[in-house]
């Protein structure tokens, strides 16, 4: 794996390999000494042009537990609007001997640019680019889903997600998590339905490998998992994508009543951070079927696997 920029970069075999490696990584995390020597002497740069404490910490923990040297660079604020800074930062990191860059950026395609503009030769791991993709989030979601569904039904781990029914609910238009999840779940054979008000579904969504619906109540009884997306408050009011928070919650929020529409085994997922009371109620977020905290823990294992395959994959193969 040279870069990980989009969930579409992963073939079915590649995605399953990454999930399997993540299982191995997760097993090591149950040990008393969690640190592995795998990436000793390698330098991973966390380049965060956009605030995201949880993703940054997750990548930091993943790299450190593989014994990599970690440099975290947070460049927030006005520098984001200047393209020069991305290029110049890339050149600087290259000069400092970075082996991989984990990039978070507000511009869609920033990771792609960093990987392919010819600025530097380092491996790039997309940790969220604008409203485009967030592939490690989709991987940790798939990891969590696969684990839980396998616990219940057993069977070949390579096939657990085949035919799994997943609803993704909320602001699909602006969601990098939704885009990566649709692509990855399709690759793994799952059946995805996007549920959102029409204003929050992109023009062109009809060509995506999934179904869409405007009716959450009708969808919930037939799913194995519901992924609730964060709704950003600036999208309403002046943003005009929906009339009010109350109306959104009424029509698309996962509350106690909707929780009970789900089949007994169905999971409740959320990439965080949550707006409790807006897209998800406390009852749903804290219910036994919620995997929200587990997703965070699994994030470290999945990112360890991604870094491992990016930096040590060739040696290991």
């Amino acid at each position: 794996m040279r870069h990980l920029l989009s969930a579409a970069d992963l073939s079915r075999e590649g995605a399953l390999e990454l999930l399997d490696v993540a299982e191995e990584m997760a097993a090591t995390q149950a040990r008393e000494i969690k640190k592995l020597p795998t990436l000793r002497g390698r330098t991973v740069v966390n380049l965060f042009f956009e605030d995201s404490t949880r993703t940054r910490i997750s990548f930091e923990a993943a790299a450190k537990r593989l014994s990599a040297d970690v440099i975290t660079f947070s460049a927030k604020g006005s520098s984001v609007s200047k393209g020069e800074s991305l290029k110049d930062t890339a050149l600087t990191l290259q000069a400092m001997g970075a082996d991989a860059v984990v990039l978070r950026h507000s511009a869609s395609g920033a990771a792609h640019r960093l990987a392919h503009a010819g600025w530097s030769g380092v491996g790039v791991l997309n940790a969220g680019d604008g409203t485009h993709e967030h592939p490690t989030q989709a991987l940790l979601d798939a990891f969590t889903l696969r684990r839980r569904l396998a616990e219940r039904a057993g069977g070949d781990p390579a096939r657990v997600l085949e035919g799994a029914r997943v609803a993704v609910v909320g602001d699909v238009l602006h969601s990098r998590v939704a885009r990566s999840n649709v692509l990855l779940l399709e690759t793994l054979g799952a059946d995805v339905v996007l549920v959102a008000p029409p204003t929050l579904l992109p023009v062109g969504v009809g060509t995506w490998p999934c179904r869409t619906s405007w009716d959450l109540d009708a969808v919930l009884p037939d799913v194995d998992a519901v992924m609730v997306l964060r709704v950003q408050r600036e999208r309403m009011g002046g943003g005009g994508f929906f009339p009010s928070a109350q109306e959104y919650t009424r029509r698309f929020g996962l509350d106690g009543r909707r929780l009970r529409l789900l089949p007994d085994h169905a999971l409740v997922m959320h990439p965080g951070p949550m707006n409790r009371g807006l897209e998800i109620s406390a009852e749903a977020a804290d219910s036994p079927r919620s995997t929200i905290v587990e997703q965070v823990a699994n994030g470290v294992a999945v990112r360890m696997a991604a870094l491992y395959l990016l930096l040590a994959g060739e040696d290991a193969a």
Binding site: H132, V203, G204
Partner: peptide, 18 residues
């Protein structure tokens, strides 16, 4: 707006230009 609004913009996550 960043690019033509359609299939490609939906995939790339770039704001559409209808």
């Amino acid at each position: 707006a960043q690019m033509h609004e359609g299939v490609v913009s939906s995939v790339l996550g770039l704001r559409g230009w209808p």
